[in-house]
């Protein structure tokens, strides 16, 4: 009874810059086939009621602040689950002129779920893992943020230079 946090994690879902692949897979978790509500997981639209922030997509200049705001509005204890490869490195968008990188450069991430997109099973697994962290956070055990999966794609020197140039152009 007293580990109620882990019995009713309410999830708010934030789409940063995703191609919607992860989002559709995440919504599939709610369907009768996967039915996350049997774990007490509710998909709610408001960070103020949430315990778990599920992020999809990479962070760009525009949405970094929004992500930060949504994160701030979640009451403690809270955990962040990052779905898909974009959230860790930028994925296919990495190196794009407007992309800052993974979610972890803006907010601390507790669980990364790899895949492009991850399977719903993997997502549920990730959330259940996050819920364990949530419970430990409630007890006051500070939990280290998740180790970031290795990023295989690295923009070449030229690409980086190009991106910087575009950015500068825009600011001028």
């Amino acid at each position: 009874m007293f580990n109620a946090v882990s019995k009713s994690p309410w999830v708010v879902h934030f789409n940063c810059n995703s191609c919607n692949g992860c989002d559709i897979e995440f919504l599939a978790c709610l369907t009768p086939h996967y039915d996350v509500e049997r774990f007490g997981i509710l998909h709610i639209g408001n960070p103020k009621h949430a315990d778990v922030l599920v992020v999809t997509g990479s962070v760009n200049n525009r949405n970094a602040r929004v992500l930060q705001n949504v994160y701030n509005q979640i009451p403690d204890p809270k955990v962040v689950v990052a779905l898909g490869v974009c959230t860790s490195s930028g994925g296919v968008f990495a190196g794009c002129y407007n992309i800052l990188g993974g979610v972890d450069i803006v907010i601390p991430v507790d669980v990364f779920v790899p895949g492009c997109p991850p399977r719903p099973e993997a997502m549920i697994d990730g959330i259940v893992k996050a819920v364990g962290i949530l419970e430990r956070k409630r007890k006051g055990e500070i939990f280290p943020t998740a180790p970031k999966p290795l990023c295989k794609f690295k923009p070449s020197e030229e690409q980086s230079a190009e991106t910087t140039a575009i950015k500068e152009e825009k600011t001028v």
Binding site: V5, K7, P32, D35, D51, P75, D76, R138
Partner: peptide, 22 residues
């Protein structure tokens, strides 16, 4: 769907009381 346990509302409320009062 299978649905949550019948006592889910208790969990929800107990959880809410352990959250930060923003």
């Amino acid at each position: 769907r299978k649905g949550p346990p019948v006592i889910q509302p208790f969990y929800d409320i107990i959880k809410l009381f352990s959250k930060q009062p923003i």
